[in-house]
Design a protein around this nucleic acid. Structure first.
Lengths: 153, 153
DNA sequence: TATAATGTCTATAGTTACTATAGAGTCAAG
DNA sequence: CTTGACTCTATAGTAACTATAGACATTATA
């Protein structure tokens, strides 16, 4: 039984090649992102070239902030080269939309916080700090309403 | 024992007034963000006006994306009105910096993804899809290196 | 007054994508 | 032959909640 090539690698080598931690690979396996690999007689996982590529694909997707479930879908699509790629486009478009929403809300957040920060450029007592009062519950309308109701009852 | 006013509210009312869910209030209590409230004879939590304000403060902070630990700090500072507000400023500055980093990386992500998306404007077979190949592990240098090493060993 | 709907309680598990820890077996080198 | 690096499994922790189950309490309706 001559091995024609060194076709099998262990998890550590795979991790190095794909730029992913060993524990993360095991985690991906558990999550069904990677098929259960063969085991050598000692119980160690053994991987092949295709696994490196698959894992790199996963890593690139994660680096683009995609969710594991989305990556699962993409992997399935990747393995069906004859199908129409519209589904891929849709998934990516959705993801871009999500990113845009995140960006918008973060941007709004930041503006508001910078504005708030501008209310306390000095160094004084907290009681005068515009940031703390800016974060306060402005005025307690609901409570007033509540008491108003009580008086009518 | 005449109640001079309705000063005590139950958790549901507090939730309404502060715009926070009941379960979240209990969660905040467990996390030490809110003090353990008094209980009425039936075991229900009872709150007072100051709790509404405190909880609104918390909500505003969360809406600004602050971590619960940071909010704890701010709450402590808020209750020490005589201290210098420099610590508040620093905390907010740090948070703004975090937001800026997040924004930058999300922006980069989006650009890359939009570019990728541009590689498949059509509707064709997945095998020709520029998105999938763009997400692929380009070229498997590490594996080649590995095999090179093998040959030298 | 009976009952049904709502509100409250506790405790526990699930979410996302990992990371950390413990305890044990395997393997290569010195 | 022992040290160190690598592998294995299983479990718990992270952040900030959300969901679920099962049990009382209160309130509204019939």
């Amino acid at each position: 039984m001559a091995k024609e090539r060194k076709d099998l690698i262990k998890i550590g080598e795979l991790a190095n090649m794909a730029g992913i931690q060993v524990v993360t690979i095991r985690y991906y396996e558990k999550e069904g992102l990677l098929a259960k690999p063969q085991r050598s007689p000692n119980g160690y996982r053994t991987y092949r070239r295709a696994d490196v590529e698959r894992l790199r694909f996963v890593r690139h997707c994660r680096e683009h902030g995609m969710a594991i479930e989305d990556i699962k879908t993409l992997l399935k699509l990747r393995e069906a080269p004859d199908r129409d790629c519209m589904e891929v486009n849709t998934l990516v478009d959705d993801h871009i939309k999500k990113l845009e929403e995140q960006l918008a809300s973060l941007q709004a957040l930041k503006s508001r916080l910078v504005e708030l920060r501008g209310k306390c450029p000095h160094s004084g007592a907290i009681s005068n700090c515009g940031i703390i009062s800016g974060l306060d519950g402005y005025h307690c309308r609901a409570w007033e309403d509540k008491e108003g109701q009580n008086q009518t009852n």
